[in-house]
């Protein structure tokens, strides 16, 4: 048996390690200054896919929707061992909420498929919603296993997985194809392989190839076609699809396809307010304990 697996990943701002450099003078975060990283649990998704390929044979395709620079995480997936990668990039995809995102990803999965398994990370650290996975499963009309910590087996067209629930786990069995969302506990993502890194650092999208020739106005179609064919032969071609390449309704993608709108954004401003300062001395701490006891907060 062999498994054809599609992994969806996202490039996200590193919201967990915010340093002083990313703070504006008014105490709010300068989002543009945050480094862009591979969403952590999506790395667990890639790792699970690669491990399943090693166990059962098959193929791993990694796809992402994002700006042109998101090609960087696809190269990383190739360094880890992915067979192919797809970048979904188009200004018309921008501003998508989870519903529009899952609709777009479903269209890409249909174009790239069929697949036995679709894998996503549990959630992305910029939104923490965990919604795209189940919504994508609904759009593809396939079952979902969420919070997968382990795939126990894939046999006779059925997958058996251990899924985390509140306070425990469930062993769930589902027919293929199905969608899994993977938690960090599932595995330790392998690092980029040194040899693969040397090989795949030259992998490019069509836009990146054009940029090498000075931009979109480059006209020598023959040269491009030859280079593309050569890159494809060597596995160095990152597929780049726009809305026009997918069978999508323009009213269902990006901002237009998003029912949720942001009414207001309040930056969290970090300012201290009147807390009572207690000196870290024996006397200070003893005084504090006495006060808490006097107020019946401590007994």
């Amino acid at each position: 048996m062999s498994l054809t697996i599609l992994v969806f990943a996202k490039q996200v701002p590193d919201t967990k390690n915010i340093t002083g450099k990313a703070m504006k003078d008014d105490g709010t975060v300068n989002r543009a200054a945050l480094p862009a990283i591979f969403n952590p649990e999506d790395l667990n998704g890639v790792e699970l896919a690669l491990a399943l390929r090693e166990r059962y044979g098959g193929k791993v395709v990694v796809a992402t929707m994002g700006p042109p620079a998101a090609a960087n995480i696809l190269r990383h997936a190739l360094y880890m061992g992915a067979d192919e990668s797809i970048l979904l990039t188009d200004r018309r995809f921008a501003g998508a909420d989870t519903l529009a995102t899952s609709y777009t990803l479903a269209a890409a999965a249909r174009k790239a498929g069929p697949f036995d398994l679709v894998i996503c990370g549990r959630q992305a650290i910029d939104g923490d919603t965990a919604q795209v996975g189940p919504q994508l499963a609904e759009k593809l009309n396939i079952p979902q296993l969420i919070y997968v910590a382990e795939v126990e087996s894939v046999e006779a067209g059925r997958l058996r997985g251990r899924c985390l629930i509140d306070g425990g786990y469930e062993i769930i069995e589902s027919p293929l194809p199905c969608l899994l969302t993977v938690v960090a506990e599932a595995n330790v993502p392998r690092p980029a392989g040194a040899r693969r890194l040397m090989q795949y650092k030259r992998a490019v999208t069509r836009s990146e190839l054009l940029a090498r020739h000075g931009g979109r106005d480059y006209e020598d179609a023959n040269v491009l076609a030859e280079e593309e064919a050569s890159l494809r032969r060597r596995g160095l071609w990152i597929h780049e699809w726009t809305a026009g390449d997918l069978a999508v309704d323009p009213n269902r993608i990006g901002m237009a396809g998003s029912p949720t709108k942001v009414k207001a954004i309040q930056s969290v401003v970090l300012t201290g307010k009147g807390s009572k300062q207690v000196p870290p001395t024996d006397e200070g701490i003893a005084g504090l304990v006495h006060e808490l006891i006097a107020e019946h907060i401590l007994s």
């Binding site: 701002p13 967990k16 709010t28 939104g127 009414k263 309040q266 930056s267 969290v268």
Partner: peptide, 15 residues
């Protein structure tokens, strides 16, 4: 809260 808790967003469903 969104964006790693650095913003508080008010979201409305318009559909």
């Amino acid at each position: 809260p969104a964006f790693g808790g650095n913003i508080i967003a008010t979201i409305v469903n318009t559909w």
